[in-house]
Amino acid sequence: MGWRDRHLEIKSPEQLLPMRRAGLVVGRTLERLRAEVRPGITTAELDAVAEDHIRSSGATPSFLGYHGFPASICASVNDEVVHGIPGGRTLAAGDVISIDCGAIVEGWHGDAAFTMAVGEVPAEVERLIEVTEDAMWHGIAAARVGGRLTDISHAIESHVRAQGAYGILEDYTGHGIGTAMHLEPSLPNVGKPGRGPRLVQGLALAVEPMVTLGTKETDVLDDDWTVVTTDGSWAAHSENTFVLTDTGAWVLTALDGGEERLAALGVPFGPLAD
């Protein structure tokens, strides 16, 4: 099915307000988890922190039970790229961890992720994390009303390619989001600009580059969830949910709505609330 044949869910300004509330729950949960990450903590303990924070905020975890997923966050360590299942794994100094989190408020979803080092890591790993997060912001900054979906893809790929010989996952993508966590369209992290559906006000997208120090090729572990690099190279994952309004981009899962990073990239900021 081609992009032009797919139904896209366009939100009204009134519908975006509970999406922003869901996004804030996600953003605040991730902020809490950043503070909890340390050597000696298990990924299951991080999951418990996340579920408690989401529920105490009046929201529901998006991930728990999703196609049978058994936890409220994805916790992916080192060569695990995405979809890691929290459990008894204990974080050690020198690890990196990617945490992905989703929450539902009044039927509307927010979805975001970050990668961080556990203590000190080699400079190339720190750089990988930085490049991945920056690529996400460059992707969001490329979105304009009337533009095309792959303008975002091209901006992500161009930024990463300009920084070095990294692998960019192609089999896993960003996505539309709203009344479900995953909606059309799929949003590739590589591609030529000017393709795909037109970007319009109210189309919410989760932008999420996944970048590695080696290959773009991956395998799925026997748990049927955890995605790892085939060459064992370490990976980073960065994600935010955003929407275009009549005045600019509004990053629903960023606590400041994305204002600081968008301003640094010269992009209009378009909040409807806060």
Rank of each mutant, 00 (worst) to 15 (best):
M1F: 14
E9L: 12
Q15V: 05
P18Y: 07
P18I: 08
G23H: 05
L33I: 13
R34H: 14
A48C: 08
E51R: 07
D52P: 00
S56Y: 09
S56K: 14
T60F: 12
T60K: 10
T60C: 03
G65W: 08
H67P: 00
G68A: 11
F69T: 10
V81M: 09
H83W: 07
I85N: 05
I85V: 15
V105F: 08
H109P: 06
G119P: 08
E120R: 14
V121G: 10
E130G: 08
V131S: 10
D134A: 15
W137T: 01
G147D: 06
R148W: 09
T150A: 05
H154T: 00
S158C: 00
A165K: 11
G167Y: 02
E170F: 00
Y172V: 06
Y172T: 04
G176V: 06
G176E: 02
A180K: 09
M181F: 01
P185E: 11
V190L: 08
G191R: 02
G191C: 00
G194C: 10
P197Q: 03
L199Q: 10
V200E: 13
A204G: 03
M210A: 12
T230G: 08
D231P: 13
A235R: 01
F242L: 10
E259V: 09
R261N: 12
L262R: 06
L272A: 03
